[in-house]
């Protein structure tokens, strides 16, 4: 049974192909990782130097003057995200509850799930146009409110799907325990199932939050941007990603510096959210319940 003592040409060829394929796969992985490393190195290198107290406390200075910060953009982003969350998170969680608790296996639920996934792929700029013709045109002016609505609409499908996934991770035995006590269904869904899944649901919301925090395109013609302080929902408002965009395509070095700083702040926020999500989902959302 010494068949393999003399590897013939064909098996040599096969093992060479095997090694080549392995090498290519490793190379591909390295090339995928490379841009991330490059982007992070640049962000930290360029961004950290422009982050100082003024960046977080001052509004932009006029062209030509050094200093100034993005305080108004940070506040503006917070206002926009607040409006977006108020709209997107409750509706999204509600949709997720329906899919996981009531609609399992029904055609309606499958259609909602599918549509949510497809909607996730619709370009954000399209949402911006829709909200523009829905709110900005009738009101005749840009506003923080319209920007928040555009972002909120974008959160709904994401929050719906993550909420559904997290609720499905809650074991059925926990639902049965609540129903067995004669707890009304709505109460059991809210106080037991949703509460049990809440770490996962919250981090899912944070992920959706982080995603829209970086959105620029839908804000261009809804929130519009603002060089000055404003926290009014009825006026144009600054936003961090919008400001980064404006500064990046400007010809001024001082503004470029601020753009890098803003990008670093945005990325830190997003990395935190993604890490948290990964931590929570890998650990399992439930301690002790099997």
């Amino acid at each position: 049974m010494k068949m393999a003592t003399k590897p013939n040409l064909h098996s040599k060829y096969r093992s060479a192909v095997d090694q080549l394929a392995t090498g290519l796969a490793v190379a591909a992985t390295l090339l995928v990782v490379a841009p991330l490393v490059a982007i992070f190195v640049y962000l930290i290198f360029k961004g950290a130097s422009s982050l100082n107290l003024a960046f977080f406390t001052h509004v932009p200075k006029p062209v030509g003057e050094t200093g100034g910060g993005m305080a108004n953009a940070i506040v503006g982003s917070a206002v926009l995200l607040g409006v977006a969350s108020v709209l997107g998170i409750p509706i999204g969680i509600g949709g997720g509850i329906y899919l996981a608790e009531y609609g399992r296996g029904t055609k309606f639920a499958n259609a909602v799930r599918f549509t949510a996934d497809v909607l996730n792929g619709v370009p954000s700029i399209v949402m911006g146009i829709a909200v523009y013709s829905l709110i900005v045109i009738p009101q005749h002016h840009f506003s923080a409110f319209s920007g928040g609505v555009a972002l909120g609409i974008m959160m709904i499908p994401t929050v719906t799907r993550t909420t559904e996934e997290m609720l499905l991770m809650v074991p059925n035995s926990v639902r049965e325990a609540a129903l067995g006590l004669g707890v009304p269904n709505w109460r059991s869904v809210l106080s037991i199932t949703l509460k049990t899944a809440s770490p996962g649901v919250i981090t899912g919301c944070m992920l959706a939050f982080a995603r829209v925090a970086g959105e620029t395109a839908p804000l261009i013609f809804t929130a519009f941007g603002n060089q000055f302080w404003s926290a009014s929902l009825n006026e144009p408002i600054a936003a961090l990603p919008l400001q980064i965009y404006v500064y990046a395509i400007s010809p001024y070095d001082e503004w470029h510096r601020l753009a890098w700083g803003g990008a670093l702040v945005l990325i830190i926020l997003i990395v935190l959210a993604v890490s948290l999500v990964r931590y929570v989902t890998s650990r399992g959302i439930l301690k002790g319940a099997s």
């Binding site: 995928v32 990782v33 991330l36 962000l43 925090a213 890098w260 945005l266």
Partner: peptide, 19 residues
């Protein structure tokens, strides 16, 4: 890492691309 790449905002990619 690949998940992180997916979460980086478009405008940050743009900034990096420009410079």
């Amino acid at each position: 890492v690949t998940e992180l790449l997916a979460a980086i905002p478009s405008v940050v990619y743009g900034l990096w691309a420009v410079f």
